[in-house]
Amino acid sequence: MFAAGAVLGLMLLSGCAGEEGSARGGSEDPSGEWGDSSDTTAPSLELDDDGSFSGTDGCNQLSGSWSIDEADHVQFEDVASTRMACEDVDTWLMDLSQATIADDTMTVLGTDGSEIGTLQRESD
């Protein structure tokens, strides 16, 4: 019950934050494509405006949801992925937990908060 209240509270806060220029509504809006989606062997993510995301680590497919926390970090939640054995592919993106964004660089952090990799915003 408490968890449901906390989720509702976060949803309300994230809705308000967008109006005040947070990462979601401001110049650091994380929605869009990150990495090179035209290269099927490279890691990439697509963050949709509805709070869902999809992507690949260069072999496995990833999906889930994302939100912005009070520190303007992107939080990845409900992450699901395929688990194929991939020869010669660095599957670092499978360990994503959160990310920070500065300009056109997304720094992806693992569950322990350490940097595991970066993705560049894909040009329009």
Rank of each mutant, 00 (worst) to 15 (best):
G58K: 01
F76K: 01
G9E: 04
G113L: 09
L12N: 09
S123L: 07
E77S: 14
T82E: 07
E70F: 11
E33W: 08
G15C: 13
D72F: 05
T100S: 15
L96Q: 08
L10I: 08
L8E: 07
Q75C: 08
A42S: 15
G35R: 01
D39L: 06
D112R: 10
A23W: 00
M94I: 15
G21K: 03
D36F: 03
D39C: 04
R121Y: 07
G9D: 06
S52W: 04
S44E: 05
S44W: 08
S123M: 10
W66Y: 14
G5W: 03
G5H: 06
M11L: 13
D124S: 11
D50R: 09
I101H: 01
T41H: 08
T100E: 13
G35N: 06
E46P: 00
A6E: 00
M11K: 13
D72L: 08
G18N: 05
Q75F: 06
S44L: 02
S22E: 03
T82H: 06
G32H: 10
S54G: 14
D57W: 09
S67C: 05
D50Q: 08
E28M: 08
M11R: 13
S67G: 15
L10H: 13
F2P: 13
V74A: 06
M106R: 03
W66Q: 05
N60L: 00
W66L: 07
E70C: 05
T118I: 03
S52Y: 07
E122C: 07
M84E: 11
T105C: 06
S44I: 02
L45V: 07
E33Y: 11
W92Y: 11
I101S: 01
G21N: 07
E20S: 12
E70R: 10
S27Y: 05
T105H: 03
Q61P: 14
L13E: 07
A42Q: 05
L62C: 00
D49C: 07
S38R: 10
R121T: 10
D36C: 12
A80L: 07
G25F: 01
E33Q: 12
W66A: 02
Q120V: 15
Q98P: 00
E87T: 15
S52I: 04
E115W: 07
A85K: 09
D72A: 11
W66D: 02
S44D: 04
A80C: 02
S97Y: 11
Q98R: 13
S37F: 07
E46N: 12
G25P: 14
S37P: 05
A17S: 10
L45E: 00
A6N: 02
G117C: 08
V79H: 05
S31T: 15
D69H: 11
D88P: 04
G64D: 12
L12C: 09
V74Y: 03
A71T: 11
A80W: 02
T100W: 02
G9H: 05
W66T: 04
D78C: 05
P43M: 13
A6T: 00
T56S: 14
W92S: 00
D72R: 08
